[in-house]
Nucleic acid binder design. Structure first.
Lengths: 336, 336
DNA sequence: GGAGAAAATCTAATCGATTTGTTCAAGATA
DNA sequence: TATCTTGAACAAATCGATTAGATTTTCTCC
């Protein structure tokens, strides 16, 4: 590979001059500068990012940790981040940790060793790597948490108002005459799972709705589990009139069960989903759902991180809470 | 950050010894080795990947270029790659190039400067960066192409038999009495778009089916365009009895149009999709579709690349062609 | 023409890990 | 005891770029 040294030799100057010329820094005559740039292009020179990164302690790389790239919510968030970071010439290193804390640790270490300039993380469910995050922050690593929070880590974050939005849709159902409401919730120990479930429970209580343990089941944010739990709920003779599914996979599982049991939606059962997926507006009936502003989440997270990286001294930590939005489609029937 | 030097000083040995000890190389007594490892852990040492990468000319990083992470096909492929690469301690750098050749070039350069050990690429549609790929290969870069081919680049590749599979589904429709078949195809200039469309045309011709220009329209592999073109096709008084959509977004667009026009599937129109998405089996009617083995594609591509990287001398270039599979669901009606 | 300022260029240290070639000491052999 | 072997440990070069500080060249102006 051609290096700065080769160019220097070829043009007849020192490497210092070449470096300055190629980085558009002052202290090089116009003539020499042009010669160098010309030669560099001719020889097909590409800077060695390792050497450069080592010297200037900056890699223009950001690590992203999510639990599942296949989840359309995360792909959309990541896609938005990419847009923002690309504009500033940053690269992202994406790590898929599943819900595996051990893998999370390994990837974190890998990213640290790769000297990423910052991290954007949706921490794994159990939150047991808390001390690692705290340690990273203490050592000056720039971190933005999104989707899931860890209270005790002092860094920027972007989440939605999970609790409020589930509360709201529960009320939405009540307002339409639903009194028997069930739900397929997620991973209770995870931030989102916990918050959403709590929003639901609060609503049930405060709005004086019936609470049936059999109607409120965890699908672990997975399609298969949600499908099975949905079957359980819907097999009973005493069924809810509406079910809230608390993420996209839960919604999918619920839909599968409904289809299999040939239950008519919304006539026999009303459904509210969570997250948006393109199919939700295409299928019949289309799904009324709570949409997370995935794009905004990604952009905000990336922007916060860039700010933290590039304005190290004046950056103040922010906790952004975005609003989720209920989109009314065809899967809810008014009983009034 | 703590470096090898700090450990050396702290233990009272040279950096050479520390390096050997931490890398499990011979030439260090058991006693000293243990001391070093102990101390390293205690001081929270993490190797500096930049320095190491620079010295050993290896970064354990693979660049991945796709046109759209949000496309479930690509997320699934990437997810499979991640699984394979993670097992060997490689990281992936994912780049979203859209169908923008300029962005493709920039990202390629970025990845080169980051000294990735190899590239896995679904090249952008137009194939105009051909010479760049050829150049990279000539300079020893390990590349695996997937999804889309560039003939003249001499490197490993993984694709499916696009042409054959579309031919096959067209025949499938004919066998069920369909004579008027339309299609929402993709980007004609792209490899997949081209191959699939040609498979369709061949089938039409060889199987003596009607060919109506108005029934065969490009949706550019995008939902919105596919939706519009579907409306155009279905608005005519002389409609096809079946439509083949040639990727997941096309299928989605077609479905949207069908829903909007309140056309009954499969009674009034049969549909065959392409790619699989979880919703396709959940919606009503569920979609008969051609499934690409996304997981296998990702695993194969990653495996090929690893082989190319790790067995540089004995690796022989392979062109793998995987089979796509028609999954029969509810969206096709037999007219016989 | 020459002093002094300004601009251009160079030298050399540095980032952190790896590795080659050496030195040194302990144990083996005669 | 003298010599040889072997293993442990070290010094220093290296990867490629950046940059502070030294040096040289060019320019300005009296």
């Amino acid at each position: 590979m051609v290096s700065i040294k080769d160019i220097a030799k070829s043009v007849g100057v020192s490497t210092a001059t070449v470096s300055k010329a190629l980085n558009h820094k002052s202290g090089v005559s116009q003539t020499v500068r042009n010669q160098i740039i010309e030669k560099a292009k001719e020889m097909g020179y590409v800077v060695n990012g390792l050497a450069r990164g080592m010297k200037i302690s900056k890699t223009f790389t950001v690590g992203v940790l999510v639990s599942d790239i296949k989840n359309p919510f995360f792909s959309e968030v990541i896609s938005a981040m990419e847009r923002v970071l690309y504009a500033k010439k940053y690269n992202l290193m994406i790590c898929n940790v599943g819900e595996n804390p051990q893998k999370e640790v390994e990837y974190l270490e890998l990213l640290v060793s790769k000297k990423v300039d910052g991290l954007i993380v949706a921490p794994a469910a159990e939150g047991q790597n808390l001390s690692i995050y705290r340690n990273l922050v203490r050592h000056g690593m720039k971190i933005v948490l999104f989707d899931r929070l860890i209270d005790s880590v002092n860094c920027d974050s972007v989440v939605i108002d999970n609790r409020a939005s589930i509360y709201e849709v529960t009320k939405y159902l009540k307002d339409r005459g639903h009194k028997k409401i069930g739900s397929i919730y997620g991973i209770e120990k995870s931030y989102t799972g916990h918050e959403r479930l709590n929003g639901f429970k609060e609503a049930i209580e405060e709005l004086n709705l019936e609470y049936h343990k059999e109607w409120v089941r965890s699908g672990f944010f997975r399609e298969e589990d949600s499908y099975k739990q949905s079957l359980e709920i819907l097999a009973k003779s005493s069924k809810p009139t509406a079910i809230i599914a608390m993420n996209n996979f839960s919604t999918l599982g619920l839909m599968r069960a409904v289809k299999e049991l040939e239950i008519k939606v919304p006539d026999d059962l009303s459904i509210i989903g969570f997250d948006d997926a393109e199919w939700m507006k295409v299928c019949s009936p289309s799904i009324t759902t709570v949409i997370q502003p995935a794009d905004a989440i990604g952009m905000t997270a990336a922007t916060l991180l860039l700010d933290a990286i590039e304005n190290e001294n004046i950056h103040t930590i922010q906790h952004v809470v975005l609003k989720a939005k209920l989109i009314e489609r065809e899967s809810v029937k008014s009983l009034i």
